[in-house]
Design a protein around this nucleic acid. Structure first.
Lengths: 190, 190
DNA sequence: GCCGCGAGTGGCACTCAGTGTCAACCCTGG
DNA sequence: CCAGGGTTGACACTGAGTGCCACTCGCGGC
């Protein structure tokens, strides 16, 4: 049973890697699923047994981020002001950028510069926002329809977007942690 | 020449109206372009001469908002702080919500609740953000890579998103201007 | 060793979005 | 009357995504 599971993971990784290799030499729009499947040595039909769409091969790497963000937020000590809680929660992104910088940079640039991928990313981000707003509302004991947590999370993601945009614009030269510090200070003054 | 132009506009409106009528009775995903074209009395091919995609029939109504926002921002008197400038700029949305509330509410709910439409809307929003950030940067005489205007605009849209979300969640019962005041106060404290 | 069973796979056919092409058809101006 | 651009419908085609079915392979039971 565990062997079958690892075999599945193998094909999955093979497909994702084949997609990334193809996207290094041609545009996302020009890349067909037939090409990706052929490069991974499986049929087109099998591709769709692993990913729901062409975009998912790339964006799939963000699948677990939502739960990780929620867990990171819940782990923060009570009493911290929302701005600090959210800033610390976003340390999650710093880690990815620091551990494998060139791959993360390439992937981030790809997602931000490809309309179809950007759309899927924003879809994911909307889920993260909802999850974090809910968790933050519980934390702050806000009433159900209080807009404060929703706005705070939205502002935090505005800071994240600005920081990531500047990060790829500067080819990853500036430290993402510094950029996040700067945008958070601007977004949550005082 | 002007007659031909009005004829074009007629077909365009017919298609948009047919789409809205269909979406009142069935989901966006279940609605095919054949259905919309047939309802408007034209061929499928003609549909694509007026709209680039199925989503565009709905989102097309937002086509001019980008330039309108930019113009509204440029019209604000110098010396106003960014938070005030952006709040006043967004009065544009209040007008639409006030003039034809039930149609705007239906359209907004549709766009926010349909993944494909939401994706196109966010794409548009990204363009608006870029335009406003550029204009604001000129206004504030910020240096080219200053993050302040980008963050300010992002924060403003976080406030807009929260307000619009609450507006449709409350079925338009609460005044959108009040909601924007509330979310802007939360997003730009002091 | 054989049989059955479930999971993974490939192939095929199908729908639907979106695009290129071409012939027919206005309307308008000369 | 006719020559022109602009609009249209029909057809064919690619590519995304889905449903279906037959095949295979590894496994435990008999």
């Amino acid at each position: 049973m565990n062997l079958a599971h690892r075999k599945r993971q193998l094909v999955r990784d093979e497909l994702a890697e084949a997609a990334l290799k193809l996207l290094a030499i041609q545009d996302f729009e020009d890349t067909t699923i037939d090409q990706i499947a052929a490069a991974a040595g499986v049929s087109r039909r099998t591709f769709f047994r692993y990913f729901q769409s062409k975009e998912d091969v790339i964006v799939e790497s963000l699948a677990t981020v939502g739960e990780e963000l929620r867990a990171a937020l819940e782990a923060r000590p009570t009493g911290e002001r929302p701005a600090t809680v959210l800033r610390q929660t976003f340390c999650l992104f710093e880690q990815a950028c620091a551990e494998i910088p060139e791959k993360t940079l390439r992937l981030t640039r790809l997602i931000l510069h490809t309309p179809a991928l950007n759309a899927r990313y924003l879809e994911r981000q909307a889920e993260w926002k909802a999850a974090l707003a809910e968790t933050l509302a519980l934390r702050e004991k806000a009433s159900r329809h209080d807009l404060q947590p929703v706005v705070a999370v939205g502002v935090a993601f505005a800071a994240l977007d600005a920081a990531l945009g500047a990060w790829v614009a500067g080819d990853g030269k500036r430290d993402i942690a510094d950029l996040l510090d700067e945008t958070f200070t601007l977004a949550f003054p005082r």
